[in-house]
């Protein structure tokens, strides 16, 4: 495995750690298993790609991606809180609808960015860095900013209400917290982050594809779960940090698995096997953490 494979794995890990934080907000904080991110990640990519392709400022494109993703999250929240659709199903419905929406936005199944200005080409000009190191620097700084923001938010009165409403909705309502309102807020944040990551990914890779969303939730969940396995903590700040650590570890492990060349077509891992491997990994970590839980008094 060469250095290039490592850096690109870390880049991917950084970008997907934003998805991981989004998934952490829904699955862990809100206790709402939300699959919308499988649709909002490519939504963000599509929006960013189309805007950048049209000559829009790439930073503005990312913000529009974020807003579009939040809107998708709010759709799921609306289905669940107003129409009383079961959470999992509500998110699947939105995710399915988003597939068509994304095709409409792009007007074709995939869109390549060639000469257009992205935040990365902009930063590499400003900082006079090479393309690959600039992706690391810029994604790293963005992830650090998001971590700080999330950490600050979860320690505000509103963030506390969000955490309480996921952990004990009965108590939260008795304390005057609208648990439905918190579902809107949490899904908005989570899908906004996922779409932001999608936009970032499209700008880093120079392309958006309508099928790129498959496995986003599981990848995010893998980041959360691997993080929990490697860094036990009760502090909310560290919980956020370990999602990023989990995401990077996950991508590096995947790159390592892909680099193993056994010389046989059947026994070596192909990139198309990644979703199967990820699913297996998530099941394994879940089983281990369940066993640990049962061991406790």
């Amino acid at each position: 495995m060469n250095l290039y494979a490592y850096t690109s794995a870390i880049e991917l890990g950084l970008i997907f750690s934003l998805v991981g934080i989004g998934v952490f907000f829904t699955f862990r904080i809100l206790d709402f298993p939300d699959l919308t991110v499988d649709g909002s990640f490519p939504l963000g990519a599509a929006v960013s790609a189309v805007l950048v392709h049209g000559g829009c400022n790439p930073w503005l494109a990312l913000l529009v991606s974020l807003a579009a993703g939040s809107t998708a999250g709010l759709c799921t929240a609306w289905l669940h809180t107003r129409l009383r659709v079961v959470h999992l199903l509500a998110s699947i419905v939105t995710m399915t609808a988003l597939y068509s929406v994304n095709l409409r936005i792009m007007g074709r199944p995939n869109l390549a960015l060639l000469e257009e200005e992205t935040i990365f080409s902009w930063a590499s000009r400003i900082l006079s860095l090479s393309q690959s190191s600039v992706i690391l620097c810029v994604s790293g700084s963005i992830v650090a900013c998001v971590l700080m923001l999330a950490w600050w938010f979860l320690r505000t009165e509103l963030g506390l209400a969000l955490r309480a409403s996921g952990n004990n909705p009965i108590m939260a309502r008795a304390m005057g917290v609208s648990t439905h309102g918190m579902i809107w807020l949490g899904l908005g944040i989570s899908n906004g982050l996922a779409a932001f990551a999608g936009g970032l990914y499209a700008q880093a890779q120079g392309s958006a594809d309508v099928g790129m969303g498959i496995g986003t939730v599981v990848a995010g969940l893998a980041a959360v779960i691997i993080g929990e396995a490697v860094l036990p903590t009760r502090r909310i700040g560290w919980m956020l940090v370990r999602v990023c650590a989990g995401s990077i570890l996950y991508r590096v492990a995947m790159a390592f698995a892909l680099s193993l060349d056994t010389g046989s077509a059947w026994y070596s891992v192909r990139s198309s096997d990644l979703n199967l491997v990820t699913a297996g990994l998530v099941v394994l970590f879940l089983a281990v953490s369940q066993r640990k839980k049962r061991g406790r008094p």
Binding site: R155, T156, E157, A161, A172, M175, R234
Partner: peptide, 25 residues
């Protein structure tokens, strides 16, 4: 809330029925 600390639970109660602000607890 079982997963929240004693301190965080108390902070939550100090805003019972009041708007939850973007302000440290």
């Amino acid at each position: 809330a079982a997963a929240l600390t004693l301190e965080e639970n108390l902070a939550l109660a100090l805003r019972r029925g009041l708007p939850r602000r973007l302000k440290g607890f």
